[in-house]
Every structure is written in structure tokens, then in C-alpha cells.
Design a binder for these strands. Structure first.
Lengths: 195, 195
DNA sequence: AGCATGCTTGACACCGCTGTCAAACTTGAC
DNA sequence: GTCAAGTTTGACAGCGGTGTCAAGCATGCT
């Protein structure tokens, strides 16, 4: 193809994701992105038109890998273990990096006040997809009976609770506290075994 | 006093609080604050030295009124009613304004990446104080027996959960969903009555 | 009334950000 | 080899932000 793009798009989006994740949307400038990716600022504008459009592309990458790994963690036969490995993944994910990066979607949702509606929509879609993944897991045969709430309520409560964990991470930066909060929710959500 | 301050400090801090709360720390400029308070930018710098220092003062006002109202809501004899009125207050508080303002401490904690450590400390202190208020309520005689968790765990879980509610509010802007999440947590935390 | 103290005011310096643009360049198609 | 399409590059315009400062000014003490 004539006039071909000279940078590796996947690699560039990955690096941009890292930076957005670490610094948040508003605190990341196009110059920062140019420095981190090695692609000139002008080229980024040429390829993606604006910072917001680039961010939306990056958010797509994030969503894909994030949801896939989440589903993978959830996909254990034992319900309790599935939830444990889910929280394990989520906590590890936000505790990565120095300083820890937290959660990209939450940082964006809470940190940005008046933004292109498309970003807010994209984040809502992501949360909906997470909720749907949980619901699917809880709807498998024999699972609902082990829960103290209906599958729908349990899924939503977990989405809410994990968003809370993100905030706790930002404020306390304390692994143990997060794991303890996760364990408590699991304890409340799964019925004790009948003898 | 010679060279007395010419603006009403309480009133100014109140207006600044409103603006910070509505727009978030980083998205509020000193010019915005000057416009909103009617106090010249230079006077604000003269009185508070920097945007961060002013914000810390404002956060003090916020903390005081917020915690007081929270304690008030919690101070009902029936445990379930106390929790219900607490969530009621919290949800109403963040659903105020157009567009709704959310939660100042959470917005600040999550939205600001690399800030004066004193702001992060101030927010941690605030969450600790909220937790302590809950703990105090749960430690009154006859209360612990009604909970499915220890008072300490219950208090922390509520702090986490309410932070999650804040994020859900930002993303969905849906009262009903928030109230439903609050009810679910109450349901899980309070033991069903024994016949 | 006079005065010093400290507040107010508006201009200023400086910085970093977004987005634009024309010129130079690269590349695959023919 | 030539060409045209699309990309890269660096400069530029424009904006809004923080923080500073000197000059002007109000105020209550003496």
C-alpha cells in the first residue's frame, strides 16, 4: 500500500494504554504519548485525529484483554474458587506498576468531569459487559443455589464492590485491606455448606 | 485590625467547596474560583498561598459538615433504619446538583494522580473518620449481635461499598440502581429476625 | 489627622497543552 | 523509473493555566 503507516499500531496502542492507565486520561498529554510510543505527535494526530479518539481506541484494547482475563479467572468449577481467583486477578491488575496504576475505567469515569459522551458510554458498556460475564457464570446449572442473592443481584453487587475496591486502593495502597474486603464479600455471597 | 481581609472567609470557602465538588480539583482553576466567590484571584493567592492549600482548607469544611451529617443519619435506635438513613444521606448528597456532583473525596482520590501528599493524607483521614463513626455505632450495646460480620468488618465493608456506589453514580447516574445496591448490602449485613 | 499594615488589583512572565499546516519524505503500484 | 497517495516532521498559532509583583488602597490604631 502506498503511503503506509510507519509505526506498529498494536505496539503503539499497547504503550499508549500503559501510559493512560498509569497517569489517567487528563494527566496524559499527546507529547507524553509521543515520547512513550516513539511516534511523533503529529503522526498520532494524523492517525487518530484527537486525544479522545485515540483514547477510545486504547480503551477498546483495554476492554478486550481485561474482560477476557476476567472471564478466564471466573471460569473455575467451584464457585468460591472462581470468585477468589476473580478478585485475585482484579487486585493484582490494579496493584501493578510503580506507583500502582489502579483501574483505568474507574479513573476515567471519576476523574474526568465533562468529557465527550462517547467515553462515558464506552465505560458504561464495559461495566455492563463485566456484569454480564458474572451473570453468565452464576447462571450455570447448580450455581444460583449456592448464592445468598439472585444471580442478577450478586453480579451487580460485585461490580459495585469492586469499584469500591479501586477507590480503597487509591487511598490506602494496602493489599491486605483489599484482600480482606474481597474475602468478606465472598463470605456474605456464598451460602455456608449444609452438613 | 489594620489591613483586614475584605471578604467573608466562611462564605468564600463554602462557594469554593461547591465549585471544587462540582468540577473536581484539577478541573477547577483559580480563575473559576475567583469568578464563583467574587474574590479576586490575587486575593485568593494572598490569603491561601496556592490552589492546593486552598483546597485543603475547603476539604476541612467538607469533612466537618459531611461527617456530622453522616453521624446524624446513623444515630437512630434501630440498626436497619440507621443504615438506611445513612445510605439515604450519602446517595442524596452525591445526587445533588446539575450535573450531579458525586463525592468530593472520591473524585479527588481517584482523579488526581501525582499530588501533594497532604491531600492524599487528608482524604485517608476522612475515610478513617467515617469508618470510626460506623464502628462507634456498631459498638453500642446490643448491636453487634444483629450483624452478620464483626463491627470492624462491617464498618470497613460499608466504607468500601459506599466508595463503589460513588463510581456507579458517575457511570450510570441512576438513583434506583444505587438504592438497590444499598438495600442489598443492608440485607446481607443484618441478620434476619429470629422468630 | 496621620500612618503603617496588610489586602486588593491588574498586568506580567512563563509554561504546557491542543490542534493545524505546509513541506519533505516514503512506499507500493504501474 | 515514475508517480501519487498517504505519512512524517517541525514550526506555528492560540489558549488557558499558575504564580508573582508593584502600585494603589482601605482600615483601625495612635
Amino acid at each position: 500500500m502506498v503511503g503506509a503507516r510507519q509505526f506498529d499500531e498494536d505496539e503503539t496502542l499497547d504503550k499508549a494504554l500503559s501510559l493512560f492507565w498509569q497517569q489517567g486520561f487528563s494527566q496524559t498529554s499527546m507529547q507524553d504519548l509521543a515520547d512513550a510510543t516513539g511516534v511523533q505527535r503529529g503522526s498520532l494526530y494524523n492517525a487518530y485525529r484527537s486525544k479522545e479518539a485515540l483514547f477510545l481506541r486504547v480503551l477498546g484494547v483495554y476492554r478486550e484483554t481485561y474482560v477476557r482475563k476476567m472471564r478466564q479467572a471466573l471460569d473455575r468449577p467451584e464457585l468460591r474458587e472462581a470468585l477468589q481467583s476473580l478478585f485475585d486477578f482484579l487486585i493484582k491488575s490494579m496493584r501493578t506498576g510503580v506507583p500502582t496504576r489502579g483501574c483505568l475505567s474507574t479513573k476515567t469515569a471519576v476523574g474526568v468531569e465533562e468529557l465527550d459522551a462517547s467515553i462515558r458510554t464506552a465505560i458504561r458498556d464495559l461495566l455492563d459487559e463485566i456484569e454480564a460475564s458474572l451473570l453468565e457464570r452464576f447462571s450455570r446449572p447448580g450455581q444460583a443455589e449456592q448464592l445468598t442473592l439472585s444471580p442478577v443481584d450478586a453480579a451487580r453487587l460485585i461490580v459495585t464492590h469492586t469499584r469500591g475496591l479501586v477507590v480503597i486502593e487509591r487511598v490506602y495502597r494496602d493489599d491486605q485491606r483489599m484482600r480482606s474486603m474481597a474475602d468478606l464479600l465472598i463470605q456474605l455471597l456464598i451460602k455456608p455448606l449444609k452438613p
